[in-house]
């Protein structure tokens, strides 16, 4: 333990990230609001219930097709609130800026944050800036926090998911991660792959207006596979996912095949996983599809009794295999 250090893989959003949080922070901060380790903490406030969350953003490059670090920073926090059924009340933004960072780029990022917040119907009401010496940060790091109000009677939790429940995803997976990788490494992949970064609070509300939704998750780093494993761990069930039902845009699927990436583990910034009763699924799906960020929503599988709490993929050719949490980082292969 003494020579143990933090590895890049501890930040990948997969199993090691969870281990780091459990080993260091959960142990140090231990309290009931933190313990479930969901997208937002649920905090009582007088007679009301608040959702509270924070997230830091580190992306190279800061601008990429479809979005930029500012939009992602606002959407990520709005979405962490939205999946707990909360309506966002206010956001904060903190900036760690490397000396020499172009002022006009910073202005563009701020404008992008304002537009994303306006779209979500929330304001950035407080903030902080720090400037560090050249080389002590990579351009700009942004932290956002958000507080939201959970309407009475709403209690979404991964632990309430039941056997037989349907698993819905809100649209095409893996676009964000592939778009950023393409921009970062100038891979020149064509097909117009763009980040999906979007505020999903209105989409979540649309789904929640139908009865039967038991839990929602924001599918970000670690991808759908990691989210499903976390939900299975929390509710004590397994999941069966139909490979042929998974929405992945053809250009993204090709890019993943080329790079040796599995789209189930690639990051998204504008996708929800919704867990609802099988009976409610058609109505929830219809409500989601009527929203601009849910047009490609699809039922991709179901929750099943499984003492091993495993996520199984029923493959397109009729085979089946497990889908574990992300192990380490996803690295492109040699050939």
């Amino acid at each position: 333990m003494k020579n143990d250090t933090v590895k890049l893989a501890h930040g990948s959003g997969g199993r090691l990230s969870r281990e780091l949080v459990e080993r260091v922070f959960l142990k140090a901060f231990s309290n009931p609001a933190l313990a479930p380790l969901e997208d937002s903490a649920v905090v009582p406030a007088g007679g009301e219930t608040l959702a509270f969350t924070t997230d830091s953003y580190v992306v190279t490059p800061v601008e990429f097709p479809g979005a930029d670090i500012g939009r992602v920073a606002v959407c990520g926090t709005v979405n962490d609130l939205a999946v707990k059924g909360a309506r966002p009340l206010a956001l904060s933004a903190g900036f760690i800026i490397e000396e020499g960072f172009p002022m006009d780029l910073l202005g563009r990022l701020a404008g992008s944050m304002r537009r994303a917040a306006a779209e979500a119907g929330v304001s950035i009401v407080t903030g902080d800036t720090k400037v560090v010496e050249k080389g002590k940060a990579d351009g700009v790091f942004i932290n956002t926090a958000g507080v939201g109000l959970i309407p009475r009677g709403r209690a979404l939790s991964s632990s309430s998911v039941k056997a037989g429940d349907a698993v819905i995803v809100s649209g095409c997976l893996a676009d964000h991660g592939v778009a950023v990788m393409n921009a970062r490494n100038r891979l020149g992949l064509r097909g117009g792959i763009k980040s999906d970064a979007a505020p999903l609070n209105a989409l979540a509300e649309a789904a929640l207006r139908r009865p039967g939704v038991r839990a929602m998750r924001d599918i970000t780093r670690g991808g759908l596979a990691t989210v499903l494993n976390e939900v299975c761990g929390a509710c004590g069930l397994g999941a069966e996912i139909e490979e042929s039902a998974l929405p992945v845009a053809p250009a993204t699927a090709k890019a993943c095949a080329l790079l040796g990436l599995d789209p189930m583990y690639v990051a998204n910034e504008g996708k929800l996983a919704v867990f609802c009763s099988a009976a409610a699924a058609p109505a929830v799906l219809k409500a989601m599809r009527s929203h601009r960020y849910g047009r490609k929503a699809a039922v991709v599988g179901r929750m099943v009794r499984d003492p091993r709490r495993s996520v199984r993929l029923l493959t397109a050719i009729g085979g089946s295999r497990v889908m574990l949490m992300l192990e380490g980082e996803q690295l492109p292969r040699i050939c």
Partner: peptide, 15 residues
């Protein structure tokens, strides 16, 4: 190795 991965990822071993 790419075949190894493709066989495993498609869940083919059971077939």
């Amino acid at each position: 190795g790419t075949h190894t991965m493709a066989i495993a990822a498609s869940g083919m071993r059971r077939l």
